[in-house]
Amino acid sequence: MRSIIITGGAGFIGSHVVRLFVNKYPDYRIINLDKLTYAGNLANLKDIEDRENYTFVKGDICDFELVMDLMKKYEVNGIIHLAAESHVDRSIKDPFTFARTNVMGTLTLLQAAKLYWESLPEK
């Protein structure tokens, strides 16, 4: 079974991507990792929340241990990264949060994926 983490999956675009994957690929496990900040809303996913191939995890993409644990627990094959601080006004008001999520969050995902996939035995 393929397992894919989709970050930011409770947001407007993310929820559409999550729904598409859950419905189109019933043999894939879809893990929705979302911090549920101002943009995230689980009501966007009410129609699929009980599907067998769907898992929601409330968490921060900057949490390296969490990301590594998810990679190991679900034997993740891929990541679709949609989590981001995207409101320009917020980036001006609080640039550190903007940079933390968008830069450090992306780096966290990349490093966790690299370390996890390098640790897998060659097939």
Results as ranks from 00 to 15, higher is better:
residue 1 M to T: 13
residue 1 M to V: 12
residue 2 R to N: 11
residue 4 I to P: 08
residue 5 I to M: 09
residue 5 I to L: 07
residue 6 I to P: 08
residue 6 I to H: 02
residue 9 G to M: 01
residue 9 G to R: 01
residue 9 G to A: 06
residue 10 A to V: 01
residue 12 F to A: 13
residue 12 F to V: 11
residue 13 I to R: 04
residue 14 G to V: 04
residue 16 H to Q: 15
residue 17 V to F: 07
residue 18 V to P: 12
residue 19 R to K: 15
residue 20 L to W: 13
residue 21 F to T: 14
residue 23 N to L: 15
residue 23 N to Q: 14
residue 24 K to V: 12
residue 25 Y to H: 15
residue 25 Y to P: 13
residue 29 R to S: 11
residue 32 N to K: 01
residue 32 N to C: 13
residue 33 L to T: 04
residue 34 D to Y: 01
residue 34 D to R: 02
residue 36 L to H: 01
residue 36 L to V: 12
residue 40 G to F: 00
residue 43 A to D: 06
residue 43 A to G: 03
residue 43 A to N: 07
residue 45 L to N: 02
residue 46 K to V: 14
residue 48 I to G: 03
residue 52 E to K: 15
residue 54 Y to G: 05
residue 55 T to L: 02
residue 57 V to K: 07
residue 57 V to T: 10
residue 59 G to Y: 03
residue 59 G to C: 11
residue 61 I to L: 12
residue 63 D to F: 04
residue 63 D to R: 03
residue 67 V to L: 10
residue 67 V to Q: 10
residue 67 V to E: 05
residue 68 M to I: 09
residue 71 M to W: 00
residue 72 K to G: 06
residue 72 K to L: 04
residue 73 K to V: 14
residue 73 K to D: 09
residue 76 V to C: 12
residue 77 N to S: 15
residue 78 G to H: 05
residue 79 I to A: 13
residue 80 I to P: 08
residue 80 I to N: 14
residue 81 H to W: 02
residue 81 H to S: 15
residue 82 L to Q: 11
residue 83 A to C: 06
residue 89 D to P: 08
residue 89 D to R: 08
residue 91 S to F: 04
residue 91 S to I: 05
residue 91 S to M: 13
residue 92 I to P: 01
residue 92 I to V: 15
residue 93 K to I: 09
residue 93 K to G: 01
residue 94 D to V: 00
residue 94 D to L: 00
residue 97 T to Q: 07
residue 97 T to H: 08
residue 97 T to L: 09
residue 97 T to S: 05
residue 98 F to N: 10
residue 99 A to E: 01
residue 102 N to E: 06
residue 103 V to E: 03
residue 104 M to T: 07
residue 105 G to A: 03
residue 106 T to P: 00
residue 107 L to F: 05
residue 109 L to E: 03
residue 109 L to Y: 02
residue 111 Q to A: 14
residue 112 A to V: 04
residue 113 A to P: 04
residue 114 K to I: 04
residue 115 L to T: 06
residue 116 Y to N: 11
residue 118 E to G: 11
residue 120 L to Q: 14
residue 121 P to V: 08
